[in-house]
Design a binder for these strands. Sequence first.
RNA 1: GGAGAGAUGGCCGAGUUGGCUGAAGGCGCUCGCCUGCUAAGCGAGUGAGGGGUGAAAGCUCCUCCGAGGGUUCGAAUCCCUCUCUCUCCGCCA
Length: 424
Amino acid sequence: MLEIKFVRHNLPEIEKALSRRGETADLETFKQCDAKRKTVLLEIENLRHRRNVVSEQIAAMKKDGEDADDFVTQMREVAGKIRELEYRLSENENKVKQILLGLPNIPHKSVPAGKDSSENPVVKQIGTLPDFDFEPLPHWALGKKLKILDFETAAKITGARFPLYLGKGARLERALINFMLDIHTTKHGYKEILPPFIVNRDSMTNTGQLPKFEEDLFKLKGWDYFLVPTAEVPVTNIHKGEILNEEILPILYTAYTPCFRSEAGSYGKDTKGLIRQHQFNKVELVKFTKPETSYDELETLLNNAETILKILGLPYQVVNLCTGDLGFSAAKTYDIEIWMPAQGVYREISSCSNFESFQARRANIRFKRKGEKGTELVHTLNGSGLAVGRTVAALLENFQQADGSVLIPEALWPYMGGLEKITP
RNA sequence: GGAGAGAUGGCCGAGUUGGCUGAAGGCGCUCGCCUGCUAAGCGAGUGAGGGGUGAAAGCUCCUCCGAGGGUUCGAAUCCCUCUCUCUCCGCCA
């Protein structure tokens, strides 16, 4: 959410930012309701003041045994008027709030203009692409041959777009989760979190999934609860409503969770393999920072995620999401895209974003500077470090051998019980 | 699932026959004093959000005692609903 004062005084800029993202909003209604809200509020405050003063007077008179009936009658009328105005106020406030909740974040000035993902500039490319002297298989075919992935059985158990890992495949997934968490906690200074996998509506609203994107979520029947689409939601909400001390910032959390996404509107896209599933595992990085350091922290967050790929030896590129591709809550996002040789494309494996105060304002996460009065909103950031299923897919495809086996990166050997290679 | 207790400021904790209590007291924190050092001591200050006014310091008004609603001239205090926490019983990984 953007600050109401900012929106109020920068309507043209908001409009411009919206159009850069290819979006629109009903700013005219916002203007009207906001103005109305203010005049009504002023009127209410005046009446409340009068009521407070006279009520005190009534108290004094009663104490002295005087008759205050006239004042009481008067105030009865005032109370009625206040009630009426309060109703009108809340009507306008609700409209204003709904519009505010529907406004996406303002892109940072370093975000390039563009209409969609095809216009995301590549920031860097790391690693060398594998050069096969045979036709590389897609990971789903490898998974089947190696008997470590079985999507047919998963479909039998649940339905389409669910993974079933078997044997070494299950072990590999678990190894990667532990490996990633270990790197982030021991090398990068993050604190490990294991959060609830189900969250309430308030938490989803704070991070921006709601109210706009409810159709992307799995909702529990009979509860106003949702399955987490990313650990970002429960972890960011750890500090909701809190006023943090300056000294404890930045706060760095890393968390493994499964992620559940309805993938509404993506039918027919990436139907094969581990790329687009209703359930996948992810290790997430979350930061709470002071405003002046958040963009530096975004760079280190990106580096922390990249480190995983560097250690694993997987080739990737980093793109800077353009205005048209930027997520709703983000002010700036880098995507890390992993090379998938069988398809000959780069696929997103991590998304690292600075939300500035957008989520903090909704979640009311503030901090206090030492020796200064008042509070400020923190900046929140997060990024995948990394999506585990897609990492498995990338490992299989990039490290496949002519004999159908797949080499396991050395860093994972201890996590695989010494296994260096998966063979059919 | 059954029975009961509770939710107050950064923290602890008073306040429920409704009326100068935005909230005593303590801790913590900030500034000053004192003090060979440390500790202790003394003095002052110290919630948040919003509005008006002002160049600013400030002054002033409104709101907030888990959330929402109600009663009342007036509610932290009374009533209702919800959420959460704790205790006991039951059940259970």
